[in-house]
Amino acid sequence: MKLTLRVWRQKNADADGTMSTYEVDGISPDMSFLEMLDTLNEELILKGEDPVAFDHDCREGICGACSLVINGDAHGPERTTTCQLHMRSFRDGDTIDIEPWRAAAFPVIKDLVVDRSAFDRIIQAGGYITAPTGSAPEAHATPVPKPDADLAFEHAECIGCGACVAACPNGAAMLFTSAKVNHLNVLPQGAPERETRVLDMVAQMDEEGFGGCTLAGECATACPKGIPLMSITSMNKEWLRATRKVKR
């Protein structure tokens, strides 16, 4: 396959960026999107040019490190992560636009790499449980009803990649935050911090400069892990419940 790539190039956080055009040849349809970029970078390095910086780690769709807005879609045209997207989703001769996540809370560090540490601070605000340390507790000591376990697991699938923020017209982190809140709030282990968790995580989300939810639904469409839009509804419910219960 021969492709034309238009890639966002930006030297550093302060520099102005621009879309640069590159031609790549000899791309196999079996390559992953990141392998295609590796091919481009090998050529750039041989030519003595600066390779395109992009985030990646596990390359098996479970770590949440890879990003990229491909032809206007976070993680590209398939409902998966960029590392699990294969070149067979494109056609020979295609022109592909590759851009970084765009949000005020995700500043570009270089080229396609953005700073997602705002997510870490949201987690620090309440995405944990008061776990007893020491040896592992007896598994049956805390019974969890099956539907609750399933619901928690559905939300626990969130890998924190930030595609929801990238896809949202308001740069909102509602789907990410709601996935984390619901994951822990439905479980008995998460009950002690049920109210403070949702209040603190939403407050941190606002603090980081993410936008608000207008229920456009773009986040849930982009999410490679299929976190449902209803997750936000559940978080709103939890938030309203917590404001009634907690006196601050």
Binding site: R6, W8, M19, V69, N71, G72, D97, E99, R102, A103, A104, A105, C168, P169, N170, G171, A172, G209, F210, G211, G212, T214
Partner: peptide
């Protein structure tokens, strides 16, 4: 708040 949270638009 929403407009401030998404200062740069996508080219595509």
């Amino acid at each position: 708040r929403d407009i401030k949270a998404r200062p740069s638009k996508y080219v595509h």
